[in-house]
Amino acid sequence: MTETEKLYDLLKKAQEPKGYYFNKDRERVNDLLSSLLLNKDRFGYMACPCRLASGDRQSDADIFCPCVYRGPDIQKFGSCYCNLYVTREWNEGKIPHTYIPERRPASKLPF
């Protein structure tokens, strides 16, 4: 089993009971999970792969995956910013797959 597969199983088990499902596009999920592992190597934590991390743990705390914006984005759009975590309805195509605007305020940018 690869590290990505291990992470997939681990997160699926932890997140699904909370109502957060992986995107049914497994290739995309694997790619995002590999990026999370890469960021873990780079920074020591799994920073969101769809955002520019600063490398400073404290400044990046809101974008540790799952980020603090996942909840409101899932609620509004049925998907997180990266399309990694989605709702069952999103996966079933019952919710339109729209562009999700960046919810992280510019004031949080450490650069």
Binding site: D31, P49, C50, R51, L52, C82, N83, L84
Partner: peptide, 10 residues
């Protein structure tokens, strides 16, 4: 872009 970002890759 970002090398890790799925939207960027797409």
């Amino acid at each position: 872009s970002l090398s890790t970002c799925s939207h960027c890759k797409n």
